[in-house]
Simulated assay, not measured.
Amino acid sequence: MTETSSRLLRLLSHLQTPRRWAAAELADRLDVTTRTVRRDVARLRELGYPVETLMGPDGGYRLVAGTAMPPLLLDDEEAVAVAVSLRTVGGQPVEGIGPAAVRALAKLEQVLPSRLRHRVSALGEVVDAPLPEPDMPSVDPDVLSVIAGAAAAGERLRLLFRGERRVVEPHRLVPVRRRWYLVAYDDARADWRVFRLDRVSEPARTGQRCADREVPGGDAAAFVLDRLYSIAPTYEVDATLHMPAADAVRRLRVDPAEVTPVDAASCRFRGRADTVPWLASRLLMLGCRFEVHSPPELADHLRDLAIRAAAAAGGTSATDGRAVAQAPPADERRATRKPTSSTR
């Protein structure tokens, strides 16, 4: 019985790899006969696993979607990857995903072997999960799943975008700065477009195949970033941070090229963002002293925050705080905001 159960688990592990498995190949992998493979497949079906028999000269099997979620088998690396992903997914602006991720993580950690539980715990101690922003619009998970299904199947998609009906050819979903974007070819405009998913509703698959197209540049993520920087106001920040450069890169989650060491205890951060409040929150959450050299809008915003914080603390002087924003003299201020155009 033990040998049979072990063999069933190994068979299930193979079938969970999304491909067609010939009976002879499975028999070779399990070191059994094809007749035994057929019996084991029948046992898996009795346990609720939807194993489909494929026709052909060699026959074959494939695990397909069923009416219920069967147990999954994960190897060590897959289990750790899923656990870490569940720890960090709470910051994504998908409606209801945070509580669902917590429930799934609790179930997973309950059955993790001790050797893997220690690895997951160690990663959790040093990885900072992004906090969801209170004003960040969320994405309906049903919208996300319908669009993802259409993109994976290569089907045209009908959707409502900011009140306008569109028919598009979905290509890729790209998460950027806690927002989700769809890269798609817009049939009516005969051009590639980027759609923010929190502005999309009523997606419906049409069943019509998409044309074989390649996103400009061949990289959907780079295409989204290029469009966002070209259509949105961008602020370039230049600040001295009183923390080691390696710590700043880790805490800010930025390209190391944006952080230059000044000495062992401080560094220069040069980056950009589309909003001043977002820049301010990133710097303040570092928990270290810093000086802002540009843009002046950021220094002004920090002063306003300091005044409000001082008032909330009962009249404490705004200069008593440890986060210091130093703006250049008024006659040296230069607007660092790039030209803007209307956003989609």
Rank of each mutant, 00 (worst) to 15 (best):
L108E: 02
A129M: 06
A106L: 08
A104M: 11
Q110E: 14
G96M: 08
Q92N: 06
A100E: 14
V120A: 12
L112R: 03
A101W: 03
L105K: 03
A100Q: 15
V127L: 15
H118S: 09
A106M: 05
V120P: 01
A106V: 09
V127Y: 06
L86N: 03
K107E: 15
A100V: 15
A101E: 05
A106N: 10
R115V: 09
R115L: 02
V127E: 04
V102S: 08
V120R: 03
V126R: 15
Q110I: 01
L112K: 04
G98T: 13
I97C: 11
S121T: 14
A106G: 11
G124T: 11
G96A: 08
V120H: 01
Q110A: 14
P130G: 10
V111G: 01
A122Y: 06
R119W: 01
R103N: 10
V111K: 05
E109G: 00
L105E: 10
T88M: 14
V127G: 02
S114E: 14
G124Y: 03
A100N: 07
A101M: 08
L108P: 02
R87Q: 14
L86C: 01
V111R: 09
P99S: 09
P113Q: 04
S114Y: 00
K107T: 10
V111A: 07
G91F: 07
G96W: 08
V111S: 06
P93W: 02
E109T: 15
S121D: 13
R119A: 12
G91C: 09
P99E: 09
E125Y: 01
Q92F: 08
V127M: 14
G90M: 05
P113G: 04
R87Y: 08
A106I: 03
L86Q: 03
R117M: 00
P99F: 07
R117G: 11
T88E: 04
P99A: 12
L123N: 00
T88L: 14
A104Q: 13
V94D: 07
R119I: 11
V120Q: 01
V111L: 05
R103T: 14
Q110K: 11
L112D: 01
V94M: 09
T88A: 14
P130Q: 09
S114T: 11
